[in-house]
Amino acid sequence: MQAETFGSFALVRSTWSGVLIGIGVMAAVDEIVFHQLLAWHHFYDGSTSEIGLMTDGLLHAAELIAIAAGLTMLWKLNQRGMLIRSRAVAGLFLGAGGFQLFDGTINHKVFRLHQIRYVDNILPYDIAWNAAALLLLIVGIYLIKAR
């Protein structure tokens, strides 16, 4: 049976499986590259290094849960013949871009949990961070509309 015959359920679930994986993957990239390898910041920098490290661990746990949930949804949809791969891929870009934009605007500017990097002129970093997020979101939107 074709996935399209299942209608909006398959579309929505396929998209959300990708969104969860995208969120988890982008959180992992952020946590591994910017928190660990470059040591630019922790998830929460308003306290001690130990608290910062603990919050990085919580972010890591959340990203693994998001990836596992998304992969479980993807696997179940595929087993039932309901997976719409193009929607899952679009969801992956939407999730990655959504996480990046949320992190760059809400976590960095509204909640002030941390900055991308602690330098005198943060503006180029903010622009690059949010531009990357918007690019990922645009790709996701394009992939959904191209279907």
Rank of each mutant, 00 (worst) to 15 (best):
I32E: 00
I23R: 00
D103A: 10
A61W: 01
V89R: 10
R147L: 08
F99H: 07
I122T: 15
Y44L: 03
L58R: 09
M82G: 13
T48P: 05
A3H: 05
Q100A: 08
M1W: 04
D56C: 11
A88C: 08
V110A: 10
L53N: 09
T15V: 08
G140K: 05
L58I: 15
A10G: 07
I32N: 07
G91L: 01
L58S: 10
L83P: 09
S47T: 03
G97C: 08
R117E: 05
L137V: 00
I106C: 05
L134N: 02
D126W: 03
I116Y: 14
Y125T: 01
G24Q: 14
Q36V: 12
Q115M: 12
A27F: 01
H108E: 15
E31M: 13
I144G: 00
G95S: 10
T48A: 05
M82C: 09
L137R: 03
D45V: 05
L113M: 15
A96I: 02
Q100H: 10
A3W: 02
I67T: 02
I23Q: 02
L64G: 15
I122E: 15
L38G: 09
Y44S: 07
W129M: 08
L53I: 06
E63I: 00
L77K: 15
F111Q: 06
F99C: 03
T48V: 11
